[in-house]
């Protein structure tokens, strides 16, 4: 199972690097999103395979239990339950990643407004006006027209 996860990580990270190296900032934003998936899956994989070890497996249960303590308190050994810690870490990462995505997309809008382009190579040479009054004074700057 871990091997499959490794392949998923490879695909997510590989495609995200491809996008990050692209010319279009929107693609870069997508790349960041995808990179988040790759990282989360990587952490998930490190909690080990969810498949129960052969000696503990029964006909009804072939997977480890979710980290919810049901009837059995105190908890089962981790051999029978998936590790909760990576999940907690990923949960945090997902939400933070979402907030950062919102921030990043807003940055794209602002970048487009103040420079008129989202092409990475052009941005490097563009004099960027960073003052806030710019976005205020021209609230309806046509954003669809490349400079």
């Amino acid at each position: 199972m871990t091997f499959v996860m490794a392949l998923c990580v490879t695909a997510c990270v590989g495609v995200s690097i491809y996008l990050l190296l692209g010319r279009d900032l929107k693609g870069v934003a997508m790349g960041v999103f995808l990179l988040g998936h790759g990282a989360n899956l990587s952490i998930m994989a490190m909690s080990g395979s969810p498949v129960l070890p052969a000696e503990n497996a029964t006909a009804a249960e072939s997977l480890k239990a979710a980290p919810i303590l049901g009837a059995h308190v105190p908890s089962p050994a981790l051999a029978n339950m998936v590790d909760p810690l990576p999940q907690a870490l990923i949960l945090t990462a997902i939400v933070i990643g979402f907030a950062v995505m919102g921030f990043l997309l807003t940055l794209l809008i602002i970048t487009n407004r103040s420079t008129g382009t989202l092409v990475v190579d052009r941005l490097a040479n563009e004099p960027v006006s960073t003052t806030r009054t710019d976005t205020r004074a021209e609230p309806f700057l046509p954003s669809g027209t490349p400079s």
């Binding site: 490879t10 990270v13 990587s42 080990g48």
Partner: peptide, 9 residues
């Protein structure tokens, strides 16, 4: 990265 994942896991 896949490789790192594999080794760590």
């Amino acid at each position: 990265f896949g490789w790192i994942t594999l080794v760590c896991a």
